[in-house]
């Protein structure tokens, strides 16, 4: 019995650690909010992440600020980003921005580009319609 306990106890401990990790992770596992989720929230100073696709034609760069809209299937949110966007930033690409929701616009200071799983040598072949709504 003690011989088996030596192996069973670490195994149970490991399983326990994994379960605890999973439970704690599940809140952090949602890396960002969608525009729909953000619009349902109250304005606050709480630091949040917002993810979605940059609406084509919405990008306006001036005075070190970049204003653009981020959309999911149902909604779009105005983002005002303070800083230089990553080099891959462009219209139609996925982004995750970090900052606060003022109720009217999302004030962001950090931007990550979220590229998708498509790979095309020719830009013409990029499949826009399939992926415009799949971020949520």
């Amino acid at each position: 019995m003690t011989r088996y306990a030596k192996f069973v106890i670490p195994a149970l401990l490991l399983a326990g650690v994994l379960v605890v990790l999973m439970v704690n992770l599940s809140s952090a596992l949602v890396y960002f909010n969608t525009p729909t989720e953000l619009l349902a929230r109250e304005a606050s100073d709480e630091r949040l992440r917002l993810g979605g696709r940059v609406v084509p034609g919405s990008v306006d760069e001036r005075d070190g600020l970049v204003a653009f809209s981020v959309q999911d299937c149902d909604a779009a949110v105005e983002v005002i980003h303070a800083g230089v966007p990553p080099q891959l930033f462009q219209e139609g690409i996925g982004v995750v921005v970090e900052g606060a929701w003022t109720g009217e616009a999302f004030q962001s200071d950090t931007m990550l580009v979220k590229h998708d799983e498509q790979y095309r040598t020719d830009a013409e072949d990029y499949n826009e319609t399939d992926h415009a709504c799949t971020e949520a």
Partner: peptide
């Protein structure tokens, strides 16, 4: 889960 990393 919703991640920054793209799907496979």
């Amino acid at each position: 889960w919703r991640t920054l990393h793209q799907p496979p």
